[in-house]
Amino acid sequence: MDGTAKILKYEFHNILRSKWMIGYAIFFLVITDGLFRFVGTDAKVILSLMNIILAVIPLASIIFGAMYVYHSREFIELLLSQPIGRKNIYWGIYCGLSLTLSAGFVAGTGLPFLLEGVIDAEYLSALMLLLTAGVLLTWIFTALAFWIAVRYEDKVKGIGAAMLIWMFFTVVYDGFILLVIYWFDDYPLEPAIIGMSLANPVDLARVMLLLKFNVSAMMGYTGAVFHQFFSASTGLGVSLSVLILWAVTPFLLGLRYFQKKDF
């Protein structure tokens, strides 16, 4: 653990000075500030942010993450020749990137809210959930990126795989849900759709946030079922746990691969 902390310290130091990291934070800052200027109210800003976050964070995390691992190869080799366990190295590098990305996102998004000053108590919890979802998505897609990048030696292959995974979770999967709804229109689909949402972190984050904004009322019976599941504290607990599981699983798979990998 000691090795991890030391690597982490230097990762922070290193990443926080890099241009793309600053760009990433500024991106969220500009978007959020822009939304405040042009869209107005807290609720609308949060809802509009949600769209952006759900598309941008997975993409940025998975691409940055993969690039970062490829880029850090020599550094990893340097570390590997030092008396440090591989587990510590993986932890250190993963946490270094995912925590700085999360910090960049939270700072970039949160700052305009702080500057605007008044956050309605009603929307404060929505904002918190939005930030939590964004942070969890960062962890999830960084973990996926690390897994891909340690698996595929070839950078082009790795980045390609990362793009495909992003496409799958943000576009293809929802197309599949749509087909299921179309095919099985006559059946009570709600439990199946809840299950399918849990199986995709992007959808899960989206549904969780949607219901936070009480969109369930628009969904009639389906909405009621979803609301019942997701708004209960158990539902929220389940959702957050599943999101965390979504980060832990690829992380462990990547770690296992990394521990056996030849450099």
Partner: peptide
């Protein structure tokens, strides 16, 4: 063990001072 790899590359953003501090810290 001291190791000198064939191709030496380090975290690009660190200064030499920081790099040495890093390896000293690791040890």
């Amino acid at each position: 063990i001291g190791y000198m790899p064939q191709l030496a590359r380090f975290p690009e953003n660190l200064t030499l001072k920081e790099l040495l501090a890093l390896v000293r810290d690791l040890r």
